[in-house]
Computed example of a mutant assay.
Amino acid sequence: MEEEEAREVVIDNDLKKKIKETVKKILKRSSLLEITEIKAREEASAELDLDLSRDPYNLIIREAVDTFIEKAIMTIETEMGKLHTQIVDDVDGGGTEKTTKTTTKKKTKKKKKVEEAESSAA
C-alpha cells in the first residue's frame, strides 16, 4: 500500500497548464481527421520530455483533447449554419451580383407600375 502512495504523481498548476497548452498546440497544427488522443499524448511527451502515458497525465491529456474537440465542433456547427444561410440566399437569388441586379430591376419596375396605377386612379 505504501508503494502505491509513493508512486502517486502530484502535478502543480503550472505543469498542468503547460501540458494542456502543448496538447492544444499539437491539435491546432494537426489534421483533425488523423490525430488521435494517443498521438497527441505521444507528441506532447516528446516535446515536454515527460512520460504522459500514466495517470494523472492521461486525464489532463484527455481533458485538453475533449475541450479542443468540443470547441472545434461548436465552430464547425456555427460555420455550417452560416454556410447553410448563404446557400439558401444564393438559391433564393440574393447571393450573386447578377441576381441582385435582376431583383433590383424587378423591384424598380414594380414600383413604377404602382406609381402609374396610383396616378391613374387620382
Rank of each mutant, 00 (worst) to 15 (best):
61 I>V: 14
23 V>Y: 01
100 T>R: 14
114 V>T: 09
52 L>G: 05
64 A>S: 11
85 T>G: 06
6 A>P: 00
98 K>D: 09
4 E>Q: 13
84 H>Q: 14
52 L>D: 02
76 I>M: 03
80 M>Q: 13
75 T>K: 01
84 H>C: 09
106 K>E: 07
106 K>G: 03
96 T>Q: 13
51 D>R: 09
110 K>E: 15
47 E>M: 04
46 A>E: 14
49 D>H: 05
9 V>E: 13
28 K>F: 02
7 R>Y: 04
22 T>C: 08
118 E>M: 08
23 V>Q: 01
113 K>C: 08
8 E>A: 15
29 R>A: 08
36 T>A: 06
10 V>Q: 07
103 T>N: 13
74 M>P: 03
53 S>V: 07
22 T>W: 05
28 K>Y: 05
105 K>M: 03
26 I>G: 01
9 V>F: 04
99 T>C: 09
77 E>K: 01
77 E>S: 05
46 A>P: 04
96 T>M: 10
52 L>W: 01
72 A>S: 11
101 K>V: 10
61 I>H: 03
62 R>S: 15
43 E>A: 03
24 K>G: 00
98 K>P: 01
52 L>Y: 05
74 M>S: 13
49 D>W: 05
110 K>Y: 08
101 K>E: 08
59 L>N: 12
26 I>F: 02
64 A>R: 01
87 I>P: 01
46 A>S: 14
60 I>R: 00
59 L>K: 14
122 A>V: 06
50 L>H: 05
9 V>D: 10
102 T>Y: 06
41 R>P: 00
30 S>C: 09
23 V>L: 04
100 T>P: 02
117 A>C: 08
50 L>T: 07
85 T>W: 03
10 V>S: 07
11 I>S: 02
21 E>C: 03
86 Q>W: 04
65 V>D: 03
15 L>T: 07
121 A>D: 05
45 S>E: 07
19 I>S: 00
99 T>R: 09
68 F>G: 05
21 E>G: 04
50 L>Y: 06
5 E>C: 08
59 L>C: 14
105 K>T: 04
113 K>H: 06
10 V>L: 08
57 Y>Q: 10
39 K>Y: 09
34 E>W: 11
96 T>E: 10
94 G>L: 11
60 I>H: 01
4 E>C: 12
77 E>T: 06
120 S>A: 10
35 I>C: 07
32 L>G: 09
40 A>D: 00
60 I>S: 02
120 S>P: 00
81 G>R: 13
93 G>W: 14
77 E>A: 00
11 I>C: 05
122 A>M: 13
87 I>F: 12
117 A>Y: 02
89 D>F: 11
82 K>W: 12
55 D>V: 11
107 K>N: 13
101 K>T: 12
39 K>H: 09
111 K>H: 04
